[in-house]
Design a protein around this nucleic acid. Structure first.
Lengths: 225, 225
DNA sequence: GGATGTGAACGACTTCACAGCG
DNA sequence: CGCTGTGAAGTCGTTCACATCC
């Protein structure tokens, strides 16, 4: 990493966090996934056009994105896979473990808990919560389901940083409020509502209904042409 | 726009489909959801600033979006809720029924099948498929699980238009190919891969791993400041 | 007055094109 | 040579500001 000699060290120490678009960050995750596979397959060098092709985007875009990581590219050669992976993981913040809790133990929660790959990327689910008293105490995917009243104590005890909201729309805001009050730093929300959170808490919403409607619209559009 | 005497009825019949950004379409879904709730609560008129506030966006943005629907706004008043709903549903293509099949009967599939609201928006799941021979013939959420070999015949028989891919990454492309071969018009993909589809088939990908990493990045960023 | 519709300014993202380096 | 890094141009989306209309 420490790259002195040549390179003006634009990430010297002052404001290393340049403006990274949300789109770039999403692509970072995708680059990382492809790189890790290729690296496992023994590929040691990769070019911006290979990455671009894998993601279906322009190669200049790839170089622009990767430039945020510093001057890792070797003109005439490409990028060293392992080096890129390390830099990407560091920049994304996944070069360390993340702990998460899930509220709402339905099928979606189960799907997430079983999703292999989260673990590989350093995400660890440490607790589950549900409002349904019948589910409390049950073990799901190796974790015990706690009562909603225990959110605060369990989140503090586990020092969980991320919370997944997988409850019906009408309960989502109050669940989010509980998580925030317990000290959660970021929420992944699957409920179809616009959550209101304090600025210090990050939010990513995945709205499945919107996505399905989006698809219907695209098909609808394609048919009327 | 041609400006003569009351509304030029620009949605007469010619070329109503202007360029609609993907972002606009996503917002359309959100507008629709809020409007339907407000309408059910008896609200008859709504303003761009109310909608903007509900979605957390600028009111000018709302007006720009809604302008795609024609001149529905009443200066000094706002928009008539019912009229907006009708226009939005029509434009989104959800003023008719959509049939969908799901491939990969895991927890994610179950979560989708139970998701209330899909039905209300006119989406109907008509068949399930799975490669696991032990699941074939089982009933899940009222639908029978079919073998992968039956994709073609069942899709044709049900005239399903949309396909949900909820299988592991390594099988996603071949599943998608089967769906396309069977005549599916659009695919909602949950597998963490970049699917390659013919141009005539629409695609929406929901990558949960990317979303979780995005959240981690945002928290990571907020902490280093 | 109060809210729409929209040109114009602004800002963000993408692509082009090419100098420069290994 | 091939491939990076990056200004410049181009494209797209958002916000501003205000004329317009009920």
């Amino acid at each position: 990493m420490s790259k002195h000699e040549a390179v003006p060290a634009n990430n010297g120490n002052a404001a290393p966090e340049a403006k990274l678009s949300r789109a770039s960050v999403q692509r970072f995750s995708l680059y990382l996934r492809h790189l890790e596979r290729w690296n496992a397959e023994g590929l040691q060098v990769v070019s911006s056009s290979q990455l671009g092709e894998a993601l279906g985007i322009n190669d200049a875009q790839v170089r622009k994105d990767l430039a945020y990581l510093g001057n890792l590219g070797q003109p005439g050669i490409g990028y060293y896979t392992q080096e890129l992976i390390t830099a990407l993981r560091h920049r994304l913040g996944v070069d360390r473990a993340w702990t998460a809790v899930v509220v709402g133990v339905g099928n979606l929660a189960r799907a997430l808990l079983r999703y292999r790959g989260f673990g590989e990327q350093g995400f660890k689910f440490v607790a589950l919560f549900d409002a349904d008293i019948r589910k409390i105490g049950q073990a799901v995917e190796g974790l015990t389901v706690h009562a909603m009243d225990d959110v605060s104590s369990v989140v503090r005890a586990t020092q969980a940083e991320l919370g997944v909201v997988a409850v019906p729309a009408e309960n989502a805001q109050s669940v989010a409020d509980s998580l925030v009050a317990a000290g959660i730093k970021g929420i992944l929300n699957f409920a179809p509502v616009t959550l209101r959170l304090p600025g210090a808490v990050s939010l990513v919403t995945v709205d499945l209904a919107v996505q399905l409607e989006q698809l219907a619209f695209l098909v609808h559009l394609a048919q009327n042409e």
